[in-house]
Design a protein around this nucleic acid. Structure first.
Lengths: 379, 379
DNA sequence: TATATAGTTGAATCGCCTG
DNA sequence: TCAGGCGATTCAACTATAT
């Protein structure tokens, strides 16, 4: 392919010198103040992962009205205002430089943004010596529409994941991600809803923070790139989604925030968060956990009867559902995914979409059954 | 609302000077040579849209844009990085500057890339004065897996769509996109398969180009942002996907390519491409683009009688049609839009959809009358 | 209590022409 | 350059109210 990293000259090594012990620092605490000043107080190489949700520098114009007349509650906070692209770049480089210093040699950093700022951030990351591992697309299942019909609906945000350098031995829990994704490799595009409903924090009836991130997003980031006990720093803490998820997943956290209103809400929220018990964490890490809805659950709960016959979309193959949720084809048996892969001679297969059954007289993928189940059984 | 942005310097205007006619240029042809040199030969403001798939590797950019004589950042002292990223940036800025010059004031540019280069490209676009309209995610339905299991499967590429400036009147065929997307607004994430099968061009049994883009991608881009007869330029033509789709969609094209092997394949391919006939090219028009019909015209032509009573959909308000095409509610009078806005206490209102009248026994928006009028009186 | 309907909301660079 | 008038424009999910 001849991509940049192939022909690029070797970067500085980023592997920790043997025998150097990371400094002990206070964790599970919130530092009140400017993120650059507060990071400057921390010792070198003390953080395992940084998650950063910096201002996007949206540069919005006047009011925007919805077709039905309502006014869009835009992000108009002072913290999102920068005079020029140059001043935004200087700010970005400054906080990234401190972030790089306090991050362990094998730690990694995540930054989230939109097209307004993410290209500046990505460029700054590369310029400061970080090594980009992936860009991840958060595909919003329920974005705000483009009310005026002037552009494509802005339906995603971008996250950049980077290590300290090309040779850094960053953490990536491959199996945990594959398990979370129903035994398929986790892709670089993640479909998740925006933060709303009960999860959305309120103060006096209005949203506590204009850009609260969903916990599911942080959950996946942390599950992918940290180990239990790791220290996660969020320099733009806001209402503390990073802290709440860290606590839930048994990670240590440090938040930096300068707005008193956000701090108060964040501390209250994290106090109320319940850590998952250790056995649950272990299962997730070792990939023994079943997919969120196991195929067998559909059998157990009567959505599919044992003995039911499944076929592929073109009715080339047939399989019989067994009582334990496995499939049998002749003498061969296995999971819906494995059997699909075997029959096609493919390395992998998503059994949920490969296998079909008759529903209301039509041949539909069994995923439709899972959706029905989820609708009826979600907590 | 930006207090700060008020003081920010105004962006360059991108509106065409009055009376300036775009230069006539040769189209539907391939220019053999370096993209910057070839673009330099074209006149100002002669291109309606640019689609660019620049190289990610630095062989090309590095050769052309080696830093002159030892300008090394003394603090960072990372000469290698400066060489690699810096030369790519210089290459990017150089071709973008020429692209900006030859693009019409209301034209737009698309650039595609991956995380290796897209952040540099996005930053350069903004620095050169382009105004980003959207970033679009091409979500690959069948990406190459990450064989080593060390990262997330790189399952997307990023496109940036930008105009010449904040105030440019770029082309966006909103309704065509909405129709294409099953009557929902087209989102910024597009699910499309990678280029393979019959479409993938071969030479001597192996793929003719390492990164051939699928025609479906160009099809959507061109359908969204150009009109029939527009001139589309592709400065990194490769195997000519842009040319083939332009021909199919009745757009004019110019390609620039310096590799003889690609040129040969591209010309052959475009020769074989079949243009759609004109009726097939017709796309859904937005109401904005349709001929305007004043409400008064419906009164003049007898589609509505003066004295007729209009109501809103829920019959909360009533208004009487007057001979001049205004409405009266009590003592208050005004246009259909103004009265709708006043009654609702809204900043604005579309009177065509707000006001209803009885048609064939059913309460229908008066826009239905306008449609009837248009059908009967179309030129 | 369950279902149906109406109202609200989310990181948004969101119109165009005339005088 | 700005003000004002015409008139075009929304998706999914959650919450509150009504039946």
């Amino acid at each position: 392919m001849g991509v940049m990293e192939r022909v690029a000259p070797r970067r500085k090594k980023a592997v920790a010198p043997a025998g150097v012990e990371a400094a002990k620092i206070a964790t599970d605490c919130l530092l009140r103040g400017d993120c650059i000043a507060e990071m400057a107080k921390l010792p070198d190489a003390c953080i395992d992962m940084i998650f950063a949700d910096p201002p996007y520098n949206l540069q919005l114009g006047g009011d925007l009205f919805r077709p039905e007349g309502g006014r869009v509650d835009a992000v108009d906070n002072d913290w999102d205002k920068f005079d020029t692209l140059g001043s935004y770049d200087r700010f970005t480089k400054a906080w990234l430089r401190e972030a790089r210093r306090i991050l362990k040699p094998n730690g990694s950093i995540w930054v989230i943004g939109s097209y307004h700022n993410i290209f500046r951030v990505g460029t700054a990351l590369q310029d400061e010596g970080f090594w980009i591992l992936n860009d991840i697309i958060w595909r919003k299942s329920n974005p705000m529409p483009n009310f005026k019909g002037t552009r494509f609906t802005n339906a995603h945000e971008t996250l950049i994941w980077a290590s300290q350098g090309e040779d850094a031995k960053y953490t990536f829990n491959y199996k945990a991600m594959k398990t979370l994704n129903d035994e398929l490799q986790m892709r670089s595009d993640w479909v998740l809803p925006i933060c709303g409903g009960q999860e959305r924090l309120k103060r006096n009836g209005t949203k506590a923070h204009p850009t609260q991130k969903p916990e599911a997003l942080l959950y996946r980031v942390m599950l992918a790139c940290t180990k239990p006990g790791d220290v996660v720093l969020d320099p733009f803490f806001g209402t503390g989604t990073t802290g709440a998820v860290a606590k839930r997943l048994g990670r240590k956290w440090i938040g930096i925030e300068r707005e008193d209103d956000y701090i108060e809400v964040a501390l209250e929220r994290i106090e109320a968060a319940l850590p998952l018990d250790e056995s649950a964490l272990t299962i997730m890490q070792t990939a023994r956990q079943q997919p969120k809805v196991a195929f067998g659950t559909l059998v157990e709960t009567g959505y599919l009867q044992p003995g039911a016959v499944l076929t592929d979309a073109k009715r080339r193959w047939q399989a019989v559902v067994r009582a334990d949720g496995s499939l049998s084809v002749g003498k061969d048996t296995g999971s819906i995914h494995k059997m699909g892969a075997t029959l096609q001679g493919a390395p992998s297969c998503n059994g949920w979409t490969f296998w079909h059954c008759e529903i209301d007289g039509a041949l539909k993928p069994i995923d439709a059954l899972r959706q029905t189940y989820l609708l009826a059984n979600e907590p």
